Computed example of a mutant assay.
Amino acid sequence: MIINKFFAAFSQLISKTSQVAKQPLVKQNLIQSEPMRLSKYLAQTSVCSRREAEKMIQSGMILVDGKKVESNIPVTSENKIQVFTKNGERMPVKQSTKVWIFYKPVGMICSHNDPFKRPSFYDFAKLRLKTDQHVISVGRLDFNSEGLIVVTNDGELARCMELPETKLQRTYRVRVYGTFTEEKLKKIRNGVTIAGVNYGPYWINVENRQSRNTWLIMRLESGKNREIRKVMQKFDLRVNRLIRQSYGPYKLMGLKPGDFYEAQIEPEIKRKLYLHTRKKLQNVQEQIQLEQTKLNIKTLDDQSKNDKLIEKQNNDLSEKKNINTNPPKQIHSKIN
């Protein structure tokens, strides 16, 4: 009943918006193009306070475009800024990057196109955020699942958070219907193979046992398509409710279905984004070096072939010259 009321209100909101707001939404130009002092830039990108930035500048802990800075110079988002602290290197996130937390209700899809015309998260997000920016969900929840979705306008950040090697932990409350035994719990913890695909192992505990339903808490560091449902089905258990409670450092924090709130980019995410960006840069540099090596080898091969051709031509000319300068002696036969 609550879900039906929610989507009835959602449909009315879309209808009113399409009738009244025929003018395009105002674009939110969040990119800082004007130069600003380095300390202010670092404060606005949540790296440190202005005072801390000024101290680090004096200590030679900040590089701009690969060069150590000794004064509070003007910078923009185009500059490559590296900050070295006691806890390692930190890199400012783009000023335009935003992160929101959304409680996705049951009955909403995380897709741009749906042949069945079901309510889409993307349509709802743009209406609630009042923006025509391109927003992206970090990971997905299927149609019948609910709970936390991290939303951002930065594709690189979303990609970084989704990658298995980032190892951002997801926590789920899962209600399963069927006979749930300690033996099944042990087997699920160890992980299973379904149709040649390995799932798990998992951190999983029983939260509450009912007559035929059991509430579980599960933690995953990656999420394959319908993973939890497939694993439970393997043990004759049917998932009849699935709620994602957290994704990395982000938690639902009392949100209700359909609620949004803007969150900070947590230090853990900044660090992982920096490592992800650095790895990509290293891969690009390695690829460039590989291509350069291949080009050098090809150049050497071509030079070697050219040298051999020149040598052959010189040899042929030498032979012709020898023939011309030393013609063969004529043999006269004696006539008796």
Rank of each mutant, 00 (worst) to 15 (best):
N198P: 06
L275D: 09
T17R: 13
T299R: 15
Y202G: 02
S120H: 07
T299N: 14
V192L: 07
R189M: 07
P249V: 09
E268I: 09
R229C: 02
F124Y: 09
C48F: 00
R170A: 05
R278K: 12
K16F: 10
I265A: 02
G254I: 05
S71W: 09
I109L: 10
K279P: 00
P327D: 03
R219I: 10
T179D: 11
D259R: 00
M1D: 09
Y261W: 11
L309T: 14
Q58I: 15
P74H: 07
R278Y: 10
Y250C: 07
K230P: 03
H276I: 02
M91Q: 07
G155Y: 03
V197E: 06
I73E: 02
P328H: 09
M161C: 03
I335C: 10
R241C: 03
L216G: 01
K94E: 10
S59F: 07
N79F: 12
K27W: 08
A43L: 03
S15I: 13
Q313Y: 10
E319T: 11
P115S: 04
H134K: 15
K55L: 13
I288M: 15
L281D: 10
N144G: 09
K40Q: 14
Q285T: 13
S11R: 14
S111M: 07
R271P: 07
M36F: 10
F260K: 00
K187L: 10
I57D: 00
V83Q: 01
K230F: 01
R37F: 14
M253R: 14
P74I: 00
E221D: 11
